[in-house]
Design a protein around this nucleic acid. Structure first.
Lengths: 194, 194
DNA sequence: GTCTATAGATCGATAGAC
DNA sequence: GTCTATCGATCTATAGAC
């Protein structure tokens, strides 16, 4: 395996971590490969050794949270009852966002990723997920739930970028976010299956 | 004042509208002045006649909603009682977001605007606003409200970018968003002053 | 007020030495 | 695995003709 002496970090993982941080701060289009290389103290060509194109790098950065979302869809599908599924989705998405904060910011906030991740996003199974949550209708009650769910998922970005709220720590922030989601969606503490 | 025959729109207002649409779709960094000029059917230099730099153009696009936020801060300050102020803020921010949807997306979502609007954002009086809402403490109840408020303001972006929810129309969407905010913040329909 | 032309910088990406 | 050097494209911005 030839794991020789590596004087300073310039491996694949280091590139991913550096890119993730810069993407979060300045967006994908606002982050050049030169800036990534500079922050690592290596040359631009060294970055290209690990990733053939910038889009590949973007995909690499987003891979963990994409996988997490797919897994979440599976977990939710295993729940029985509409409220149990809603609550599982709520908790799962909060856990994902807290655990993969940086990637979550990029996925939810960057206007660029849509063009590079359209296929992956479509394959996440969100369409089937919405169906299993009975969120495909257009009656007023359903629309209210859809609006609330959209506000919640998008809104997670707020506290997760506010330094004063991040200072609460992951655990406390998680509780606050779940509580916010339950209020928004009108879910009781211990949901019963319908 | 010499309003001669203008064969096709290439005035200052048309530049602003075109830029606003492209900024919303592809972000500020993802929108070149060439793309704006192309969509208008004019040359790049024609755009530079109206705006000296790209940052000037960004500021021009964001000016209406920035003014709206400043005005909102004034309106909220005139309310008496904490719940009345919270409710006024909630309704005001929803009205602003619905009325200036495109600009709202750019302000809330684009990683670039922070660097160009830092001074303007600081001057919006949000710090004083938070104080007047008694949201400066760090006790659990205050933090819960701060998290909820952050989720709500950031979350408005969700429904306002979802075509299926936008199809509800401004009026219905407005009601849904206000209802969501009241649930999140635990505000009753007709708020009484404390 | 709009144009062509171009300067100067930076971008993504590649080639080839070590 | 990292480097220097470079290509071609694109970007912001300016100069000057009409």
């Amino acid at each position: 395996m030839a794991a020789g002496t590596r004087p300073r970090g310039a491996g694949r993982v280091q590139v991913l971590e550096t890119a993730r941080r810069l993407f979060t701060l300045h967006g994908v289009e606002g982050t050049s490969l030169q800036a990534i290389a500079d922050l690592m103290g290596v040359s631009k060509a060294a970055v290209y050794y690990h990733f053939k194109t910038k889009d590949d790098l973007v995909r690499g950065v987003l891979e963990p949270i994409i996988a997490g979302i797919a897994e979440l869809a599976r977990v939710i599908g295993a729940q029985r009852g509409r409220n149990a599924r809603l609550d599982a989705m709520l908790i799962g998405i909060v856990d994902l966002a807290v655990a993969h904060n940086d990637e979550f910011q990029v996925v939810m906030g960057d206007p660029y990723i849509g063009s590079v991740l359209q296929a992956e996003v479509d394959a996440l199974g969100f369409a089937e997920l919405a169906e299993s949550l009975a969120l495909t209708g257009t009656d007023p009650a359903t629309m209210a739930t859809r609006v609330a769910l959209s506000v919640f998922v998008t809104g997670l970005r707020g506290p997760l970028t506010d330094p004063e709220l991040l200072a609460l720590g992951d655990a406390a922030l998680r509780e606050h976010l779940i509580e916010s989601g339950r209020r928004l969606l009108g879910i009781r503490r211990r949901p019963h299956a319908l």
